[in-house]
């Protein structure tokens, strides 16, 4: 005998339970991090303007182990492309062994675009992000907003689940954010493995976040 409410809910539970179990299993697998020797494929989502500048500062401190570096940026963002190219050229002068790719995706939302039409363009960029992320198969995703990085991270989570491939998502909130998170930050606080903030007030509000001081 099953109580009527439970019987009503059971199809939902049947669907939800395996998802919860698989997620829990994946999380367990994820946490058992291993010591690494080979290089690590890095996927960098370059936001635009100041976001890209901050990102390149972070990348400048990374060792050669983070190779190849796959950059994703919005197709309308010529400035980021130029900045990334000159950054990689500078690195190539210092280190002989360098590998990188540049990948364009449609932008989620242009500044001042209406919210209703942003839903459509976001959907489009989600659809676009999936095959790209699957093809690049990153070990680590590094992003710092704005919206462009959300579809990429969601497709990486799916890659995680479907291909049992461990993709670490690291989100770094911009130095500009002192007391409030950006929209991308608010979403990725829940989806990232490591969420880094640069001001103590944010660390207090968001206990799961990591505070390393000012890193850009």
């Amino acid at each position: 005998w099953v109580p009527p409410l439970l019987s009503l809910l059971s199809p939902v539970l049947l669907v939800l339970l395996p998802i919860v179990l698989i997620t829990a299993l994946l999380l367990l697998v994820r946490r058992n991090s291993i010591s690494r020797t080979g290089p690590l494929s890095l996927l960098v989502v370059a936001g635009s303007g100041g976001h890209t500048t901050e990102m390149l500062r972070l990348l400048g401190s990374l060792s050669l182990s983070y190779s190849p570096r796959h950059y994703i940026f919005a197709d309308s963002d010529k400035m980021s492309e130029d900045k990334i190219r000159s950054f990689e050229q500078n690195r190539a002068e210092t280190f002989s062994n360098f590998q990188f790719t540049l990948n364009r995706i449609p932008r989620c939302r242009e500044v001042q675009q209406s919210w209703s039409s942003s839903i459509l363009t976001t959907l489009y960029s989600v659809l676009y992000s999936f095959p790209l992320t699957f093809r690049l198969k990153p070990d680590l995703i590094l992003c710092n907003g704005p919206g462009t990085c959300v579809p990429i991270c969601i497709s990486a989570l799916l890659l995680d689940i479907l291909a049992l491939r461990k993709v670490i998502i690291v989100y770094v909130e911009s130095i500009c954010r002192v007391e409030t998170l950006s929209l991308a930050g608010k979403i990725l606080y829940y989806f990232s493995d490591y969420f880094i903030v640069q001001w103590p007030a944010l660390k207090e509000k968001y206990p799961k976040s990591v505070y390393l001081g000012r890193i850009v």
């Binding site: 983070y66 390393l212 001081g213 890193i215």
Partner: peptide
């Protein structure tokens, strides 16, 4: 700013 702290943090979470 200290991006080297970020690099050290990434190395520690990726096993480098």
């Amino acid at each position: 700013g200290q991006p080297e702290k970020f690099a050290a943090f990434l190395d520690s979470i990726t096993g480098f």
